[in-house]
Design a protein around this nucleic acid. Structure first.
Lengths: 242, 242
DNA sequence: CGCAGTATTGACCAACCTCAAACACTGTGG
DNA sequence: CCACAGTGTTTGAGGTTGGTCAATACTGCG
């Protein structure tokens, strides 16, 4: 079994272009026409590798562009004064990150790889240039940004509910996001620790463990360490009916 | 004392234009040049009035544009299946709302006036047109959207802390936002109910009351019904040191 | 094999919620 | 101007969820 939530399908050494990229229309080019994609090709830095535990960018550092995860996953964290970290979001393969740097041109959060990560970058200084020539790109970026915001709202709503509902919601959303990207929706690997999940959901990691155990006892899931199988999606949904 | 968090300075009947609007550079035109602002003039619907309790827009209804509050305040709410409402955000005068409709072209939330509200609208069908002619506008919109997202993150972080920290943070942020718009920072009217505050902060409204009372006993604030005075900002900050 | 990090499980406890009742404020009509 | 209804706010008592601390088990890796 692969170490990653997903297997990276690109093992050959041929150059990766937006054209042959496995992200398909999940990435920025979605909604752009041929010539616009060609223009994008010239601007995107490709195939950067970062390994588990390393940062894709740091809070406070100057905005260097929007990133697209090609494989691997990451956590977006925010530090308070006392140094305690809060996980704001997880980023799955095919998803974009870096929007937290757009406003002030400094990143707001730190992005840490949860496993080896392969990503593309659309550099900051080219975003403005591109936006002038290609209004659709501005529109795509705006939509993505606003969509990120919607997701934040969803997360916030989830975090107002009971611990059981949070865990159920967490599992189901992860499942949905993986499904949307073509991965198995009912069986996958949790690339983040219980600690991370608890932090993200605003509950203690022991509580995450207990609830996972309880869900397993109820035959809703099977959980062994990081390997998760959803056995009864319907009942799981009962816990989380937004 | 006025019934509103702010007094609406526009009592004359002369036409309001982006040029003479009291929102100044808090509104969309910020960062645009002269001719761009002039173009905007022609596109913005001005001076719409909505009274307390009425909706500025409904969740699920088609996106009709970005709104700018000229006076009065509003709450952004989200309903779950069981009909229970969750307050996602409050909007103060001078702030924009409607970004929750950009992604899917349907509003995600319902916006309800907390008191009589006067607002402008930048209609949806003109946003794309304008973006073509004025790349700066796209940029401004993108920044605003991304800034909304940052705020959501801040809210989420706040909602992971203790009830006391949440209330302290709520008061201090409200104060900051009002200050940024030129209103008194240490004495203002809470246009929302305790119920709304509790909902927003993810705590019971009784807890909000109790903590307000406690803060008053500690000489941090003076609270009488909706009228709030901050007596000791420093100590209040101690409760909320992010 | 052993170590370090991670996950599970249990016992106890505190923060906060729920329910209930009293009280205050607002606006309305007499 | 007062009485009253309706809503919003405060205050109290008791219960529950989920946190904390601590001990134990598991996993992956050198």
């Amino acid at each position: 079994m692969t170490d990653s939530i997903v297997a990276n399908s690109l093992t050959s050494s041929t150059a990766v272009t937006c054209d042959n990229c496995n992200l398909g229309n999940l990435c920025i080019p979605k909604g752009l026409n041929r010539s616009e994609i060609d223009a994008l090709e010239l601007l995107v830095n490709r195939n950067t590798l970062i390994r588990k535990g390393a940062a894709l960018y740091h809070a406070g550092s100057p905005f260097k562009g929007i990133l697209a995860l090609r494989s691997g996953s990451a956590k977006l964290i925010h530090h308070d004064r006392s140094g305690h970290e809060f996980i704001v979001d997880f980023t799955l393969p095919g998803e974009l990150l870096g929007f937290d740097g757009l406003t002030s041109l400094k990143y707001n959060c730190t992005a840490i790889a949860l496993e080896t990560v392969n990503f593309c970058r659309l550099p900051e200084h080219k975003i403005a240039v591109l936006a002038n020539n290609s209004p659709s790109l501005s529109h795509v970026l705006l939509q993505r940004s606003s969509s990120q915001c919607d997701q934040q709202v969803q997360h916030m709503l989830l975090n107002r509910r009971s611990a059981e509902e949070r865990v159920a919601g967490f599992i189901l959303r992860l499942s949905e996001r993986l499904k949307a990207r073509g991965y198995a929706e009912l069986e996958f690997r949790l690339s983040m620790s219980r600690e991370d999940i608890g932090n993200y959901l605003g509950i203690a990691h022991e509580t995450v463990s207990r609830i996972m155990h309880y869900f397993q006892a109820q035959q809703l899931i099977e959980i062994k360490s990081k390997h998760l199988k959803i056995k009864n999606k319907k009942k799981l949904l009962d816990f989380y009916s937004v």
